[in-house]
C-alpha cells in the first residue's frame, strides 16, 4: 500500500507548466478512474489494473509511446481532459452525443449493455419503468447508465453516487432497492464475495442515443493525430490477437460486440 508516496509527490503545490501537451509526445498521459472493476481498478498496492488498463498499455505499445496513467474522479474526468491534466481518457467511457459536444472519440474498443441488479430478497421481477416506479435506484453520476435511468426510467427514485463503490455499500445495506450499471461490471461484482447480497435482475435494451456506440477513447477536440493513432492501434491489436488475449484474461464472452 504505497500509493501515497506518489500521490503526495503529485499533490505538492505545483503550478505545472508543460509545454506543447500531446503534440510531439513520447509520453501520453491517460486519464482513468480506478474505481470500476473489472475495467479499471486502483489496487491496494497503488497499481492500476483491469481491462481498460491492459488495453491502454497494449495500444501504447502499438503506438510506440510511453503511457502514464493519471487517476481522476469520474465527475471531473472530462473537465480534466479539457484542462490538459491528461491527453486521453481510457476509462470505459461510452461514446455519446452529449459527450461528443465536449470531446472527440476514437472508434469503440468494447460495447456491452447496461443491466439492473437487485438484492436477493427483492420482489422485483422485471426492469421496466412501471415496475421500478418509486423504487430507489442507484447509479453512478455522469454515466450513460444514470442518463438511461433519467430518460427511460423516470418513475424510479434515482440516487446518484460519485463512484460505483458507494452504491454498492448502499445496496448492501438495503438503502436502495436496485442499481443500474454495465452488465459486465455488475456480473463481476455479483460473482465476488462483496456482491453476495444481490442478483442480476435483467439486462436492458441499449438505446443508441443514450448508450452510444460503445466505449471509446476520448481526446481533446481537434487532436486528430492522436485520435487516428489510437484508431489504428485499436485495429492492430484486434487483428494481431492481443485484444483477444486481454479479453480472455477477463471475460468469457467477447466484449467487443458486433
Amino acid at each position: 500500500m504505497r500509493i501515497q508516496k506518489f500521490m503526495l509527490a503529485a499533490s505538492a503545490a505545483t503550478l505545472a507548466l508543460t509545454m506543447g501537451a500531446a503534440s510531439a509526445q513520447e509520453v501520453v498521459r491517460i486519464g482513468t478512474e480506478g474505481a470500476y472493476p473489472p475495467f479499471n481498478v486502483l489496487e491496494a498496492d497503488g497499481t492500476l489494473t483491469g481491462f481498460d488498463i491492459d488495453i491502454a498499455n497494449a495500444l501504447c505499445e502499438e503506438m510506440e509511446v510511453q503511457c502514464e496513467f493519471v487517476t481522476s474522479d469520474w465527475d471531473g474526468i472530462i473537465p480534466g481532459l479539457l484542462a490538459g491534466r491528461f491527453d486521453a481518457i481510457i476509462a470505459s467511457m461510452s461514446i455519446t452525443e452529449e459527450r461528443k459536444q465536449q470531446v472527440d472519440f476514437t472508434e469503440k474498443y468494447y460495447n456491452t449493455p447496461p443491466a439492473i441488479a437487485v438484492p436477493n430478497d427483492s420482489e422485483l421481477t422485471e426492469a421496466t419503468d412501471e415496475a421500478l416506479s418509486g423504487i430507489a435506484l442507484g447509479a453512478q453520476s455522469s454515466t450513460t447508465h444514470s442518463n438511461y435511468a433519467e430518460e427511460k426510467l423516470p418513475s424510479a427514485d434515482l440516487r446518484l453516487y460519485p463512484t460505483a463503490d458507494e452504491y454498492k455499500l448502499d445496496i448492501a445495506s438495503g438503502r436502495i432497492d436496485a442499481v443500474i450499471d454495465d452488465v459486465i461490471v455488475l456480473s463481476e461484482w455479483l460473482d465476488s464475495e462483496d456482491g453476495a447480497c444481490c442478483k442480476l435482475l435483467d439486462t436492458l435494451e441499449t438505446d443508441p442515443v443514450i448508450n452510444g456506440e460503445g466505449a471509446g477513447i476520448a481526446v481533446r477536440p481537434g487532436e486528430d493525430e492522436l485520435r487516428e493513432k489510437f484508431n489504428a492501434a485499436i485495429l492492430a491489436i484486434r487483428e494481431n490477437g492481443t485484444y483477444q488475449e486481454i479479453n480472455d484474461k477477463y471475460f468469457d464472452v467477447d466484449v467487443y460486440g458486433s
Binding site: A12, A13, A16, L17, T18, M19, A83
Partner: peptide, 20 residues
C-alpha cells in the same frame, strides 16, 4: 486560465491540482 492563455496565443497547458 486556459482560455486566457489560448487567447494570448500560447499553447501552454496549465494545471491546477487538487492541493493548489
Amino acid at each position: 486560465l486556459q482560455n486566457l492563455l489560448s487567447a494570448m496565443g500560447s499553447s501552454t497547458t496549465i494545471e491546477i491540482n487538487a492541493f493548489l
